[in-house]
Design a protein around this nucleic acid. Structure first.
Ligand code: FES
Ligand code: FES
Lengths: 133, 133
DNA sequence: TTAACTGATACTAAAATAGTATCAGTTAAG
DNA sequence: CTTAACTGATACTATTTTAGTATCAGTTAA
């Protein structure tokens, strides 16, 4: 019943690191060293953040990354959505097909309710709120 | 971010079926037919329920299953724990080893908080409450 | 005796997860 | 104008989890 996978974990940690980096560019290498994250893995994790406009990158020597958004604008829910293809808990998908029991499934109704609560929590959670604690 | 896997799904549906079966024994075959659950899969799912004393079985012809407990005593949280080896969301285990970042991880603290809430919900949820809705 | 059952495993296939490797292009500095 | 330090983009592998199947043995009622 894992809510967070390594991709999300590493992304959050990298973004927290970038938040403390001010306006200068930090290389992926330096982040991976500081946070003990496998370098190639971290590069792959960061790629979608650049595409989505959460992180800005500068190529070449002396290049690197910096935040494109204020840490208060970077929601954990958005990160989770990036790294879990099937995000919703209540879709009840198995092998790409929806569970045959969906209409009228009592368990599903309850899972939907719980999901709304969990989603709301991750919606409130940002890189900024994580840094504050 | 799936909370419920097929094992738990099938177990809940089978237990709901058994609840409506009164005091007579229902065969796994009849449950699998009614609920559209693969027969062999269902047998494997039910095995631990028998061992844990949630379901009573009778061998031989005319044998089958019936509930060993009142539906109000069968908590969904217990079922989830049976079928997810690593139940806790916040343990942050990867490949059997705990995440190296656990002490002081801001994200983990928050996941622990959310987990408590989700667990409490599944604690309240029983076969009886599911049947009522 | 036999058909309808459960008990217990062992097996397979597909997907998700975690991690690695490689080749290409860009840029700043010497 | 070359080279070292970077990012961009994929393609690959290994492990674990999830879903589902197959099989053999034992039990019981008719
Ligand atoms: S809809 Fe799939 S378990 Fe209920
Ligand atoms: S402890 Fe593993 S992500 Fe925080």
């Amino acid at each position: 019943m894992k809510l967070i996978n390594k991709d999300t974990d590493y992304a959050v940690r990298a973004l927290m690191e970038l938040s403390s980096g001010g306006d200068s560019y930090l290389s992926v290498k330096s982040i991976s060293d500081k946070q003990n994250i496998p370098y190639q893995f971290l590069r792959r994790v960061i790629a979608p953040l650049i595409k989505k406009g959460i992180v800005k990158s500068k190529e070449g020597s002396e290049g690197g990354l910096k935040l494109a958004l204020n840490p208060a604008k970077i929601k954990v829910i958005d990160l989770i959505k990036i790294y879990h293809k099937e995000f919703k808990m209540s879709e009840c998908m198995f092998r790409g097909k929806p569970c045959c029991n969906r209409e009228g499934c009592a368990l599903r109704r309850e899972v939907i309710r719980i999901e709304r609560c969990v989603t709301a929590e991750f919606e409130k959670m940002t890189i900024k709120t994580l840094l504050q604690k």
